[in-house]
Design a protein around this nucleic acid. Structure first.
Lengths: 332, 332
DNA sequence: TTGAAAGCGCTAACAT
DNA sequence: ATGTTAGCGCTTTCAA
């Protein structure tokens, strides 16, 4: 059986292809009864518009690509969900492109790669200026960036420095030896968003303002695996002298620390006070004091900005910053 | 500035559009020097082929869609990576479509939804026969299924029952009261792949063959959150009488159990022996005995099958099953 | 309100 | 080996 096209529908409904097109695209100038008849015929024949033809003809795909580091955190799931929600209002769809390997990254240097075959791009925690050997790949494609303040792209960020500052201020309520567990940030990779460094910077600022010291020996680093986190936490707990305060630059690090605190027979919220960052669902389960990010608002704003830029590419570059909120729970 | 098309390149290089097309598509019948000249011109002009036009003209997108439940586990990352690897040989690309919400699922009922605008589909741990109100959405689109043996689609599975059986046999080496922690499987959702039930079934078989009892009171269930896992593990440990054997139907459950074993001051591998399932990186870190899945081979096979079916849609339905391998470590 | 016709950019069959 | 030409399915002017 041959493919059913708009011509077949037209013939069966006794109209011209252009009228069928008007019927399926909610064009105003069409008689309701004509439209109804055509829609009926479409049902009968099981006609499905050829998206490739439509994309080609209109020069629009009504879809965008979300490019992100390896996926799966609660943060990215919520982000994608909220982007989806906003896109739906515009009848747009999103495809997800996790940068899981070097191979993928190098393939995406090619401007005709799949992700760029859409009307716009979201870069989540990724800096397009570092991702590409040159920006030719995404020439003229509307793009918005999450987590990184770029001068040449619309961007949505959270005030990470303020988050670190709030963590610092809060921990100062109970004076004690103070530590930070941060991620081992690799320099000069396309995956360096800089958010963690900003969190530490804000924390440092709070310490300085209070006349408290913050030296290298107070800063521990860990890789992004539970094993590494546990080792780091164990080391930190061994080297402590009395009661301590710890700021972990993400909740994930706090989980490992909490385990080690329990294993060491210490009391959470007293011997060891902890502030995390992200407010993942598990943070609430564990009673972890942490900095909440308004992920949904960020996603909505991001998607909204992209839609606006697709509609009007000449808009000036916009930058929106959200503020984290300290959620005080039982670990402090 | 107007868009640069194949015509512009042709004019600049002093050839016809069809020759340019031959140059960029590695057509055999073209003089190497002509090809070189054209490729030069393309560089100069910064010509990028219009993918929409090409898709339209050829009726192929040279891309596939991977549809999966919420992403992020090590399993899915490795799977996507291995699919990518195989696709590269065919010069195909993959877009990822996580089913993060009910909204997405219902949007994807529409045959003209974004994921179907490709040459083929991979369903990972998802049964297309349950996903769709009717299969019209994916009419005629080549599709392969991971984790579920479907009569109407090519599929790649792992012998989960054998995995459970091996776990059971292995734990029997040290006679003790025996338990299983399984996921609370929700019935009749599109997300029910049935793999967990099969693991339990295989375990049960091992028990029966050895003349050992396996009753309801030995089966614990947990939700897929660390909180729930911990609670379940605590309950199990409280109710035990002496030394015990535990089969957790995924590694994630074993992590929580291991923590609770430590907290309770019990000895792993003696008081409590554990076998997990999946062999995630953390399993190795923790010394967890577990069932290894050959994820990469599965991904390669899946992608290979899909490419073959795209090339030849009339192939009979094929089914490939892999076998899990027991990795014995220190928890048993 | 509907019809007629052109054409988006590319590839492929056929001609040379 | 290259040129010529038709046309993929759709939307969008323009005309009626």
């Amino acid at each position: 059986m041959a493919k059913i096209t708009i011509k077949d529908v037209a013939r069966h409904a006794g109209v011209q292809p252009s009228t069928v097109s008007r019927a399926i695209n909610n064009h105003p100038n069409i008689l309701p009864e004509t439209k109804a008849r055509i829609l009926n015929t479409i049902q009968e024949l099981g006609y499905v518009p050829d998206r490739a033809a439509k994309n080609f003809r209109t020069g629009k795909t009504r879809s965008i690509s979300v490019i992100l580091p390896i996926t799966g955190s609660d943060f990215y799931n919520r982000l994608l969900n909220s982007i989806d929600e906003t896109l739906e209002e515009y009848e747009y769809d999103a495809g997800v492109y996790p940068l899981l390997s070097e191979r993928r990254l190098s393939r995406y240097q090619d401007p005709s790669a799949l992700p760029y075959h859409t009307d716009g791009l979201v870069f989540a925690s990724l800096n397009p200026n570092h991702l590409y050997e040159n920006l030719f790949s995404i020439q003229g494609l509307p793009a918005v960036v999450l987590d990184i303040s770029t001068p040449n792209f619309d961007n949505v960020t959270i005030n990470n420095e303020l988050g670190g500052y709030l963590a610092g201020m809060h921990l100062q309520e109970r004076p004690a030896e103070t530590f930070v567990i941060n991620v081992e940030e690799l320099f000069d990779t396309p995956f360096t968003s800089g958010v963690f460094a900003q969190r530490v910077k804000g924390f440092q600022k709070a310490q300085q303002e209070a006349g408290l010291r913050f030296e290298e020996d107070q800063l521990y680093t860990s890789a992004f695996t539970m094993r590494s986190v546990r080792e780091t936490a164990r080391l930190l707990l061994q080297e402590r002298k009395g009661k301590i305060n710890v700021f972990t630059t993400c909740d994930f690090f706090a989980y490992g620390l909490i385990e080690e605190v329990r294993l060491a027979g210490l009391t959470l919220g007293d011997d060891v006070r902890i502030v995390g960052f992200d407010d993942e669902p598990q943070a609430q389960d564990l009673g972890l004091t942490t900095l909440h990010q308004p992920v949904e608002e960020m996603g909505h704003t991001l998607a909204q900005m992209l839609m606006e830029r697709i509609e009007n590419p000449d808009l000036p570059v916009r930058s929106v910053q959200f503020e984290p909120i300290l959620k005080v729970r039982s670990t402090t």
